[in-house]
Design a protein around this nucleic acid. Structure first.
Length: 660
DNA sequence: CAAACCCCGGCTTT
DNA sequence: AAAGCCGGGGTTTGTA
């Protein structure tokens, strides 16, 4: 259960923005990876041991039905060991019913003391009659003494009690571990035991691990053994579950065990092998079948093979999705393989199955790839469904390390830009600042502004995205550029509004400056009126700035490029002037007049950050008769003085330019 | 675009 | 089992 809860947590973490929170997302994953599997629910009194089970008993029986019905869909053989599994569950089931009945009758009859006593005696008798009944009662009473927390039991006594428990339990261990109360005894035992005894416990439970994994109580013990156990123990347990993963995935309890096994206790090679089990019996039985081969390579061998594998993968995935395990990482990995071999008909079916749960996919790399691939292959109609289901999660989608790529894929492939922009519009507008300074959520917008620019999209990200573009060509009609500019047009009013109203906040952040610069210098945006409004707004802020903003290197850099009115082309090693009226010399004039002026000029030269801006101004004015040059001459002495400062490279440069 | 920097996961050590 | 080191990958930043 930890798994699904954790994944939703991971998904919905970053409530209040910025880099640190984004790290939090990762942190969450880490925490999960390293967490201690210790889900012991703390019951307060010993009576709880019996009473806590009535509801879970009902739950369990329904999940059993579930397993049976869904298992028959696939070509799973549930002949051999499913049988003895049933036996065990019946055992624990009847166990629970007993206590239910007991408490019911107690309630009904306002019975006398004798009746009570009689009932208790009967219950006790029945308990003792059960398999290993006597030992269980005894062990439980020992356990009651070990588990006391306040005050903690001294170590020597604890060890003694544990020894005692072990002595009584080792021969009946497998009868204990499937029962809700007694299995917790064993968990405690594992926790306080030496390495040797842990190994002995693992050994004792040999050939029962499948049962354990499907037991609502035993699974905790199993996970604990995996965590604390030696390498050999892990291998032993793993070996027993091997070949039964598909069945486990369909089991309510088993699915969690498999997910834990996959995320916490497997390396890359083992993970691959686990997924291979989902390909079909051949691969489930023979561990090495298909080893070292990718799913694509295997499927290329014959169409038959592909069909069987695809059917099996889909069967397992479907069962799990319908059970509500869409967030499981192992499922994402399985889906990732499935979409690699999926054909057109299967794509329709798969999207139909998943479209409402897309949000569950976007917090892992594999899930993200699945989402992107499906979006790329989806028809216009299917994309609309997907976008609609994502609408509730826009902010999480954008801010997520992987989700932002899904958003970009939507931008890359969806033809209906009107409804797409509309679906994102509200949330984007409301939280624009947070989005634009976030490491991940800014990327979709940078894409809209600049396309897949190498500055923001690394080669391998580009490679992935280009693959989705290729896949989308079947179903997308418009050209990539058209989609991008249409979307840009729809989002640009939001850009303008926020830059005009909130640029002081955005300028505080490095990445914010970067974004403003991308908007102002963008040649796809033609609204010059808005551009000059933005420029004016920035000038207003700087006019009233107490110097804090100008201490920031990125603000200085932004100003410099506005003054230069162009972008630096690193290949050509030269400045590429942009034909934008409100930038370049026009900006310089305005900027000098309204922000610097003759009275602040000295101050700007003396500051090692801002002196570079003065240099830029010097190079910007074509009219050498501009007041600026006269002002410079006037402070000749101060410039010379400032250039003596080792750190003030700008002043030194300025001195050279002026040629004083 | 390259250098500096940071973060993560794997591996080794105590 | 926890702490620490190290290498690789990705991000940030500086610089014409």
């Amino acid at each position: 259960m930890g798994s699904s809860q954790n994944s939703t947590k991971r998904f919905s973490n970053n409530a209040d923005s910025i880099n640190k929170k984004a790290k939090g997302a990762n942190g969450e994953v880490i925490k999960r990876t390293k967490k201690e599997p210790e889900p012991e629910p703390e019951l307060s009194a010993s009576e709880d041991l019996n009473s806590s089970s009535s509801s879970s008993a009902a739950e369990e029986s329904s999940s059993e039905d579930d397993l049976d019905s869904s298992a028959s869909e696939d070509e799973l053989d549930h002949s051999s060991d499913a049988q003895d599994n049933d036996d065990n569950d019946k055992d624990s089931l009847s166990d629970d019913k007993e206590s239910v009945q007991n408490s019911c009758s107690e309630q009904k009859k306002e019975s006398s003391k004798e009746q009570h006593a009689e009932q208790r005696r009967l219950l006790q008798e029945r308990k003792l009659q059960r398999k290993s009944g006597f030992e269980i009662q005894h062990i439980k009473s020992l356990w009651e003494r070990v588990r006391v927390k306040n005050p903690p039991v001294p170590k020597e006594i604890r060890d003694k009690l544990c020894d005692e428990i072990w002595k009584h339990s080792k021969d009946v261990l497998k009868d204990l571990v499937l029962k809700h109360d007694a299995s917790r005894v064993v968990q405690t035992l594992v926790k306080f035991s030496s390495k040797e005894r842990r190994n002995a416990i693992v050994e004792e439970l040999k050939s029962h691990y499948y049962e354990l994994a499907t037991s609502s109580y035993g699974k905790y013990l199993l996970v604990k053994l995996l965590h604390y156990g030696s390498k050999e123990s892990k291998e032993l347990i793993l070996g027993e579950l091997h070949g039964k993963l598909r069945k486990l995935m369909r089991n309510k309890e088993g699915a969690y065990v498999v997910e834990d096994l996959f995320t916490l206790y497997s390396n890359a090679e083992q993970k691959k092998q686990m997924i291979r089990e989902f390909w079909g019996s051949e691969y489930a039985v023979f561990q090495d079948s298909g080893k070292g081969q990718s799913i694509i390579e295997v499927c290329e061998e014959s169409a038959d093979k592909r069909n069987v594998i695809a059917r099996n993968l889909f069967g397992t995935i479907k069962a799990s999705v319908e059970k509500g395990s869409t967030g499981f990482q192992i499922l994402h990995a399985a889906m990732k393989e499935y979409v690699q071999i999926i054909n057109a008909d299967e794509t329709r079916e798969f999207i139909d199955l998943l479209h409402e749960q897309f949000a569950e996919l976007i917090h892992t790399p594999e899930g993200c790839e699945v989402a992107c691939t499906l979006i790329a292959k989806a028809t216009a109609k299917e994309r609309r469904l997907i976008v609609r289901s994502m609408k509730e999660h826009v902010i999480n989608l954008l801010k997520n390390e992987y989700g932002n790529l899904v958003a970009i894929t939507l931008f890359l492939t969806v033809d209906d830009t009107v409804s797409l922009a509309k679906s994102f519009g509200n949330d984007v507008n409301e939280q624009f600042i947070g989005l634009v300074i976030d490491k991940y959520s800014r990327r979709p917008f940078l894409y809209l502004l600049n396309g897949l620019d190498g500055r923001y999209f690394s080669p391998c990200v580009q490679k992935d995205l280009k693959r989705y573009i290729e896949l989308s060509k079947e179903t997308s009609k418009k050209s990539l550029e058209l989609r991008r500019t249409e979307l840009l047009e729809k989002f640009s009013p939001v850009f303008y509004k926020n830059i005009i109203e909130n640029n002081a906040v955005i300028l505080q952040e490095n990445v914010g400056c970067q974004f403003i610069s991308e908007v102002l210098m963008n040649t796809d945006l033609k609204d010059e009126e808005k551009r000059s409004e933005m420029v004016q707004a920035i000038i207003e802020v700087l006019k009233n700035d107490d110097g804090a903003l100008l201490e920031k290197p990125f603000t200085v850099r932004l100003l410099r490029s506005l003054i230069q009115g162009g972008k630096w082309d690193n290949n050509e090693k030269k400045l590429v002037k942009l034909e934008i009226p409100s930038l370049g010399e026009n900006f310089s004039t305005k900027f000098y007049k309204e922000v610097v002026g003759s009275e602040k000029l000295t101050q700007w030269v003396e500051n090692s950050n801002t002196s570079f801006i003065i240099v830029a101004l010097y190079e910007s004015f074509n009219d050498k008769k501009h007041k600026f040059f006269k002002d410079l001459k006037f402070i000749k002495k101060e410039i010379k003085e400032a250039s003596k400062d080792e750190d003030n490279k700008g002043a030194q440069l300025l001195l050279k330019l002026c040629g004083f």
